[in-house]
Design a protein around this nucleic acid. Sequence first.
DNA 1: GCTCAGGGCATTTTT
DNA 2: TGCCCTGAGC
Length: 773
Amino acid sequence: MLDYLQELNKAQHEAVIRTEGPALIIAGAGSGKTRVLTYRIAHLLKQGVRPSTILALTFTNKAAREMKERIAAVAGEKMARYLWMGTFHSIFARILRAEHEVLGYPSNYTIYDSADSKSLIKTIIKSLGLDDKIYKPNVVAGRISKAKNNLIVPNVYANTSEIRLIDKNMRMPAISEIYKEYVKRCFLSGAMDFDDLLLKTNILFRDHPLVLEKYLERFDYVLVDEYQDTNYAQYLIVKKLSSKNKNLCVVGDDAQSIYSFRGARIENILNFKNDYPEHKIFKLEQNYRSTQTIVNAANSIIAKNKKQIPKKVFSKKEEGNPIKVLSALTDNEEGFLVVQEITETQLRDHYKHSDYAILYRTNAQSRIFEEALRKRNIPYKIYGGLSFYQRKEIKDLLAYFRMTINPADNEALKRIINYPARGIGATTLMKLENAAIANESSIWSIIENLDSANQIGLNKGTVTKISKFVDTIQNFQTLTKENDAYNASKKIAEETGILVELYNDKSPEGVSRYENIQELLNGIQEFSINALETGEPGGLENYLEDVALLTDQDTEKEEDRDKVTLMTVHSAKGLEFKNVFVVGMEENLFPSQRQGEKQTLEALEEERRLFYVALTRAQENAWFTYANQRYRWGNLDFCSPSRFLEELDPVYLNQSNSNGLRQNERKNSYQSEIENHSRRMTRPKPMTGVNSVRQQNILGKKLVSLRESSNKASFTGDDPSKIQPGMVVEHQRFGEGKVINIEGEMPNIKATIYFHGAGQKQLLLKFAKLKIK
DNA sequence: GCTCAGGGCATTTTT
DNA sequence: TGCCCTGAGC
């Protein structure tokens, strides 16, 4: 019989076999969500439903891939292959490519990533004569993205008084014009940004009923993963595509909705029952992942939330250990404590490195833990930070590919027209861009038809340089037609000179850049081989379509196997680890409680959910750690643990601190400072524990300016060795003192100074702020 | 066209 | 801190 059904509990079983009509599957943390979703699809296939009539939407490529693999295992490779399964963006990008004509876009349209969007917005701000100190590209991009996600097109934006009022209050009344111009220029470049993929799909289905009809005919079943993370645009598309037979199945967990900042609407899942009154609801409440303690503690955190679908998540596993709360005095100590716990539990219970995860709120918090792990030689891997595809060398080469496929792509052109250097500078580029705007066309169409008698005042030499560039791209276009993606891209990499240039750069950065290019080419080779095997099109344009929607998380490296994982709570969603440290739990790192920020009930509840997500990643043991003081952005903050920790019933907690004694000793040295300042007060830099200061004021004028990034230190102006023994100096905190001795060399000059009232101190001059009296 | 000092600025993130 | 941008100076 259908043996895969045997592996399911009652709720899961129901959710798998009741395939008709609208269904809401509430999948609590660790309740076997993926299993239910994949088996439901497999079940449909076994019932004789054709795979090409099933549309399954996810948020990440990884989720789509994993699900496809699991379905293939149950229902067979062939079946899985014909499913319409992928991310919202990739599926709709595919549909838009097929239906490009009615929208007036070329089928080879480029997909702009966030960096392209931002760069274009910057250009527009400049060309409109606006001040980019006021109109910050990031903020403007955020406003435009938000508008698009809510299907507000430029005209509507300009005519909606509430929106204009917000812009006005932000002192950016011209965003509406920027938006209009942005849309126009994207169109001229034959480009869509990420939000367009959703927006244009909505417009496509709204304005072209025949097209909608075609897809309604095509898809008999629509399934959506992580429904709580859908934004308005996604919500509407899903609604439209399932409007015919209402075979819509959404899976999600309102308790794990933590993406409101990027437009996710928890209401979508909360209101499902109203949208589809005839719906069935399935609650997967048994948690197979965590101990009872962890599940109960997590439940108790979100119990206070008003906005939620009632459910009783429970675990039948053993009760397990209480959650350990570690309070450290400084962030360094926090790192130390975490590493100490890792070593201790490893010795005792023989965990692997990969059984541990360190979760934090912001990527910037990783550093302390990296250092602590490195000191103990514990291998770790970090998620987040600069993604592979965001690296300069990768983006440069990809820009050549983009130009080759869609030469109208202005952002790509601007990136490479002078890289490698061709002597086409900023002034020339500006002239070209203005000409393109005036002509309502792309830069390419201007330079393609340049002759020496051009109207835009370019001299002969420049025209020659530009036409050489045009030749290069045209040459690439020819060789792309004649080669598969791998051979085309390899030739492009060689002929542009990028490969040689990076090969000749023997600095560590240069070597790594060269390796990255090689890695990209290897990836393309894989793509080409794969295309050959499956019979799918393997041209460069096909690769480019894939790569635009690819991210770092899609490349798991073999050498990353047995390592401690460091990541943000957000990126840990969907993962599980035997042991989880939730670190940096100070109040002021939780933004809903940060000073000066509006506290809304929504924000508060989302913070609880974030806390919930963090805790439910743990299978066996969990720790909450925080530091009482943290050095951050040049200030020393005094902190207290997050209030959510206080909301937790102590019955789940073990607050005994493994290093209580040491901590007490150390506390004394900070005591006076802590007493003198209430929580959250910022104080001047302390003398110790600071890695560097930017400037030193000696004698009232800047003598030394020190910049120290991770690998280099540089000095300008005069030398701090101006400070001589015998001088009377004034220090910010220790007051007046007399220099006794100077030793060492730049940048490590040490001064021994006797301070009245503070005794003798030895200061490293690059850290000390001194005034010569 | 390139380098470098100085200023300004900081969530969370997928596509 | 640390990173990115800009403008000055070469």
